[in-house]
Simulated scan of single mutants.
Amino acid sequence: MLANAGGAELHLAARAYTAYCGTTGGRSAVTGAQLPAFEACPPLVRAAWLASVRAVSEFLTPPTSTPTREPQPGV
């Protein structure tokens, strides 16, 4: 997952992780342990944050729809 991620996506994942750290005082909300910088996190943790921002982006992106053609009179 990380290998095919674009730079913008990884930047968003890092920003989301940073926001989490800001809320928890830089500590794990589960264990209380000090959290590393995003780049120092294990690949699985970075992939999870990437999946999170992808899911939110997908949710916030309006679906594309193809315009429907109205029948022409007399056709």
Rank of each mutant, 00 (worst) to 15 (best):
L50E: 08
G74M: 06
P42W: 02
F38W: 09
A5R: 02
H11Y: 04
S57A: 15
F38D: 05
A48F: 14
P62E: 05
L12E: 07
L10I: 14
P42A: 08
A3I: 08
A19C: 14
P63K: 08
C21E: 04
Q34C: 04
P43D: 05
A40N: 10
L2G: 10
V45I: 10
T68L: 15
L44G: 06
M1H: 07
G74W: 11
H11F: 10
P73I: 03
G74Y: 13
P62V: 04
T31P: 03
V45C: 04
A13F: 09
A5N: 06
W49L: 02
A51W: 01
V56K: 15
R46E: 00
S52N: 09
A33P: 01
R54F: 00
G26R: 05
G25D: 01
E39S: 09
A40S: 12
E58V: 05
T23R: 15
G32A: 08
P71G: 05
G22I: 01
G32S: 02
G74F: 12
E39C: 00
A47W: 02
V45Q: 10
P62C: 03
A40R: 13
P36L: 14
V45L: 11
V53T: 10
S28P: 06
A19E: 14
T23H: 06
A55N: 06
L50N: 06
P63D: 10
F38M: 01
S65H: 10
S65P: 04
L44Q: 10
V45M: 07
G32T: 05
P67M: 06
P71Q: 09
L50Y: 07
G6E: 09
T68E: 14
P71W: 13
V30L: 11
P43Q: 03
Y17W: 12
E39P: 04
L60Y: 08
T66C: 05
Y20T: 08
C41L: 01
A13Y: 11
A55G: 08
A40I: 05
S65I: 12
V30Q: 15
V30T: 11
C21W: 00
T24Q: 06
L44F: 13
A33R: 13
A37K: 11
P73W: 01
A47I: 08
G22M: 00
E58D: 11
E70V: 07
T68H: 03
A51E: 09
F38H: 02
L12Y: 03
E39K: 02
Q72F: 03
N4V: 15
N4Q: 14
G7D: 12
Y17G: 03
A37I: 09
S28L: 04
G74S: 04
T31L: 08
